[in-house]
Design a protein around this nucleic acid. Structure first.
Length: 305
DNA sequence: AAACTATTCAACCGCGCTCTC
DNA sequence: TGAGAGCGCGGTTGAATAGTT
């Protein structure tokens, strides 16, 4: 026995919204608000639409200050770094990008960013293979092994994270330094919007089943799972710079490093509080601050590549 | 110019969670 | 405390459009 449908599908209109429907919905909400009940809303307005459809239309299209298309390089970096960190939590990722909706971010990732990353990776791997074949008779010292290892590492982490997110790896990704940046975490307030089930969650012992996202969202990582991941050395910092460049190159191609200034300046390790915020509002919408800028850098900072 | 293929993105669907009674 | 209603989210679909042959 399935769940009762939220609306009468026989009488509800589906498909693209007409300008008239948009105007009716927009005018009503701007004048009266949603009334806290999306299901009842279409009946009040006189729309033959499902309440969920109205909600989606408002949130993704009609709501004020919505941006469409033209994602900036900074937004690309945020999306990539957060996807690597938390996976396909599009609502959380979108909360970092003012004016962007989760649907937009999700579509952008699936149709462009992912292909751009993986496509460039594929192309360059092919070039590497050609180059390797051409020089196979020569000394391997001529090959830039460090660079190749770096490239492989960067993309493998992305791919690994994808797999981890999809499979909910029972080994617990918080124990995997390849997945988790060695950043300092801060306990979230209990009324955060990520996961209200944040009480009494403990850090899993090695081998204990617990997903990365559960710990991240619970905000209970406070130190314990990060033990052993100390501040990176200068060599690690150098590696961070290389890895950052690697991701930027994958995103934008060589010679277009949008974050060059931050690379040059280095990253202050340990200064970033992941997922911390001061406000008590359950609706989290961070502005793109210097702190969030460093999320991307922080992710890249701890790997010994 | 037509047929075919690839891409984009708005919208739908189903499920888990929270809230209310 | 359990059931039902509604909300919010992530995955998926499919129509429209763009690009290619």
């Amino acid at each position: 026995m399935g769940r009762a449908p939220c609306c009468d599908k026989a009488t509800v209109k589906k498909g693209p919204w007409s300008p008239e429907e948009d105007a009716m919905l927009k005018n009503y909400i701007e004048e009266h608000g949603t009334g806290g009940n999306w299901i009842a809303l279409p009946h009040k307005i006189g729309l033959k639409r499902c309440g969920k459809s109205c909600r989606l239309r408002w949130l993704n299209y009609l709501r004020p200050n919505i941006k469409h298309g033209d994602f900036t390089p900074e937004e690309d970096s945020i999306i990539c770094s957060l996807y690597i960190s938390i996976g396909s939590r599009w609502s959380i990722i979108a909360a970092q990008l003012p004016g962007r909706t989760d649907n937009d971010v999700k579509n952008y990732w699936n149709t462009k960013l992912k292909k751009r990353l993986l496509g460039r990776r594929k192309d360059r791997d092919a070039q590497h293979r050609q180059s390797a074949a051409a020089t196979s008779e020569m000394s391997t010292d001529n090959m830039n092994d460090g660079e190749r290892a770096l490239s492989a590492s960067a993309m493998e982490r992305i791919q690994l994270c994808m797999q981890l997110q999809e499979l909910q790896n029972p080994l617990g990704a918080q124990h995997n330094p390849l997945v988790w940046p060695g950043c300092r975490t801060t306990t979230l307030s209990n009324n955060n919007s990520f996961n209200s089930n944040s009480s009494s969650v403990t850090v899993a012992e090695p081998g204990q089943s617990c997903s990365m996202n559960e710990h991240l969202m619970s905000g209970q990582l406070e130190g314990a799972a990060m033990d052993g991941l100390g501040s990176p050395s200068s060599a690690e910092n150098s590696n961070m710079i290389s890895m950052e460049a690697e991701l930027e190159e994958l995103l934008y191609g060589e010679g277009n490093q949008v974050m060059a200034s931050t690379v040059d300046g280095g990253v202050q390790q340990g200064d970033v509080d992941w997922w911390s915020y001061e406000g008590k509002s359950p609706v989290v919408c961070w502005d793109f601050t210097p702190e969030t800028t460093t999320v991307f850098q922080d992710y890249t900072s701890v790997y010994d590549i």
